[in-house]
Nucleic acid binder design. Structure first.
Lengths: 188, 188
DNA sequence: TTATGTGCAAACAGTTTGCCCTATC
DNA sequence: GATAGGGCAAACTGTTTGCACATAA
C-alpha cells in the first residue's frame, strides 16, 4: 500500500541519529501507556501507524525489517500481542489462517472482503451495532463485542457506487488449502 | 449435550450386525451425494447428526471413538473437510483457534457466544442478511457469504427473555492463550 | 477387482516460549 | 544497576499428507 512512504522514512527511527524523527502516532500511545520504548517497538509502531491496510505478522515483519534489520519475528509477535492487550491494536481474522492487525479507533467499521482478490473494503453502518445490541439484550446478554465480515464478489459491468476507503493486497480470503479456521457464514 | 443418546446407540453402527440401525440424517445425505460409505464415515455422520452443539474436531473424534474405536483423527479431519466441500457441513470459527462444525441448513442463523462460559446461543435475524446484501451492493459487490458472531456477557440479575435453542460446552471462546486467529470486533 | 478410504506418523504453518544476552529507565 | 525486552531456536497446536494396507462398490 504505502510501502513507499514507509521505506522513504528509512533513515533514523531506531538509532543514535541526528534529527529526532517525531514519534509515530502509535509510539506516542505506547509512551502514554507507560511502555518501555525500545528501538524495535518504535519501528513496529511506525509501521503500524503508517499502515493503511490490515497486515499480518509476516507483512509487519517484512516492513519492519526494511526499516531496521535487527528485529525478529518473535518480537513482532510479542509486540503485536502487547499492543492488542493495551487496546492500541485490534486483531482481525479474514480467513486464510493468519491474524491481521489494524490500529484501534479507526472508528467503528466493518470489512467486506473481495473473495477473488483478497482486497478488503471498509464500511460503516451506524445502526447495525445498535441493532445487534438489542438482539443480545433480548437474549439476556450485554453485547461486549461483535465480529462481522462480508465476503463478496465484484459485480462485473455497470458502474456502481463508491468503494470503501482502504484497499489491501495480502492473500485472498478464500479457502485454497491450509486455512485452519476461517470462512464462516452460509451462502447468504 | 446428548452424549447419552449417542453412546446408547453404541452397538451396531459399524459392522456386520443384525438390526440394520437406520442411517443417520447426514449419512443419508452422504449417500445421496454419492459418497462411498465406510464404517467410520457412518459413525462420524451419526455423531454429527446427533450433535446439537458446535463440536470441534477433537470433540467429534472423542464422540466418534466412543462409538467405534477404530477411527483416527486424520479421518475425522478428512471427513469433515469432505462434508464441508459437499455442503453438508458448515465450518465455524468462534475464536479459540479451532474450527467448529454444524450441519448445514439448520436454517439461517447467527451465534452469540457467552464470553464467560463459551456457551453458544443461536438466534435468527431475518432482516440482517438483506441489509448486508444492500450494503455490499452499494459498494459494488454481490454478497456471497457473511460471517457474524456476537460476544456477550450474561446480564446478572433480573429475569430476561428466553435463551436461544442450543447450548454448547466446548472451551470458552475468550482469549486465554494459544488462540491464533480469533476474536475480531471492537468494544462494540 | 479396482478405485477410494484409512491409520500412522511425519510434516507443516502460525504462533509461543525458555534461555541468556542486551538495552532502557 | 536492576528489570524488562529481544534474538534465537526449540516447542506447541491445529491441521494436512505420504505411504502401505484395507475395503466398499
Amino acid at each position: 500500500m504505502n510501502a513507499r512512504s514507509i521505506v522513504s522514512e528509512d533513515a533514523p527511527v531506531h538509532g543514535t541519529s541526528a534529527t529526532p524523527v517525531q514519534e509515530s502516532r502509535i509510539a506516542r500511545l505506547c509512551v502514554e501507556r507507560g511502555l518501555k520504548m525500545t528501538g524495535q517497538r518504535r519501528v513496529i509502531a511506525r509501521v503500524l501507524s503508517d499502515a493503511e491496510d490490515h497486515p499480518d505478522v509476516e507483512e509487519l515483519y517484512r516492513r519492519a525489517t526494511a526499516l531496521d534489520s535487527r528485529i525478529s519475528v518473535a518480537t513482532v509477535y510479542r509486540t503485536v500481542r502487547l499492543l492488542e492487550e493495551k487496546g492500541i491494536l485490534e486483531r482481525r481474522d479474514f480467513g486464510g489462517g493468519r491474524a491481521r492487525y489494524e490500529a484501534s479507533e479507526h472508528g467503528r467499521h466493518y470489512h467486506l472482503i473481495d473473495i477473488d482478490t483478497g482486497k478488503v473494503i471498509e464500511f460503516e453502518d451506524e445502526e447495525h451495532e445498535a441493532l445487534m445490541r438489542r438482539i443480545a439484550e433480548r437474549l439476556g446478554f450485554d453485547l461486549i463485542s461483535l465480529r462481522m465480515e462480508l465476503f463478496g464478489r465484484r459485480v462485473p459491468a455497470q458502474e456502481s457506487a463508491s468503494a470503501g476507503k482502504a484497499g489491501d493486497k495480502a492473500g485472498a480470503a478464500g479457502r485454497e488449502r491450509k486455512a485452519p479456521a476461517a470462512l464462516g457464514g452460509g451462502k447468504a
